[in-house]
């Protein structure tokens, strides 16, 4: 079995199994926990829980005025690589074919040149995020191996994908195999590390926003 055959077959199958198990396990074990009811009386103007959660999620995508000076660029950089990753994952024709093979869904792809440009910007943005984490004493202090490994498994598919797309450094089958293996690593690690925030961010921000709005916090 060649490296590409292994990457396209057993590696992705195992990684998808690990991903599905981890996501189901973490979400259910969290959602099925006993929740304490908030017995306080809601403020008269408090919106519904759903509206509060949605509003709070959107509001926290941008730093509040007192923090804007210190956090604006960090927030912007975060948006750049998150949106960049979404464009790369869901915009490239080859990725759409991968998703189609799994779920049968497909949609029109973006031009390859545009996706390649976004990949370069995303990789640069991820590098800036890592540099800030390493340079800032506070961030360095609170960072664990989980943070650095999560960064690595996110950046690797972008880097290997760029190499595969531009046929740089090795034969295409080797580059494609490395790219697929890096995606397998990302999927396998996803639910067990901090990348799980892709699911949990909706719960945590929503829950916080519901709590705040119930108690009259406006923003």
């Amino acid at each position: 079995m060649s490296l590409l055959e292994f990457a396209r077959g057993p590696a992705l199958e195992i990684a998808l199994g690990a991903f599905a198990f981890g996501v189901a396990w973490r979400l259910l074990s969290l959602l099925a926990l006993p929740w304490s009811r908030d017995r306080s009386v809601a403020r008269p103007a408090a919106p519904s829980a759903l509206a509060a959660a949605a509003g709070g999620f959107v509001r926290r995508m941008w730093p509040a005025r007192p923090f804007r000076r210190s956090d604006l660029w960090v927030t912007l950089n975060g948006h750049v690589y998150h949106i960049g990753l979404a464009i790369v994952v869901f915009g490239l024709a080859q990725h759409i074919q991968f998703i189609k093979g799994l779920f049968g869904l497909q949609w029109p792809n973006l031009p390859t040149g545009l996706v390649s440009l976004v990949s370069v910007i995303t990789l640069a943005s991820l590098t800036v995020a890592l540099a800030r984490r390493v340079v800032s004493p506070v961030l360095r202090l609170i960072s664990t191996a989980n943070d650095y490994f999560s960064w690595l498994v996110t950046a690797l598919p972008v880097a290997t994908g760029l190499l595969a797309q531009s046929h740089l450094g090795a034969r295409y089958e080797t580059l494609l195999a490395w790219h697929l293996l890096s995606v397998a690593l990302l999927l396998a690690w996803f639910p067990y590390g901090k990348l799980m925030h892709a699911f949990l961010v909706f719960l945590t921000r929503g829950e916080t926003a519901i709590l705040y709005r119930r108690r009259g916090v406006q923003s």
Partner: peptide, 28 residues
């Protein structure tokens, strides 16, 4: 296409989800 998986992971993924729900449910 070359970029797609050669396996049919439906059974593996389905089984993994059921196992994940069982372990998560038991934990909860």
């Amino acid at each position: 296409p070359l970029s797609s998986s050669t396996s049919h992971p439906g059974a593996v993924v389905g089984g993994a989800v059921v196992a994940g729900i069982a372990v998560g449910g038991l934990g909860a």
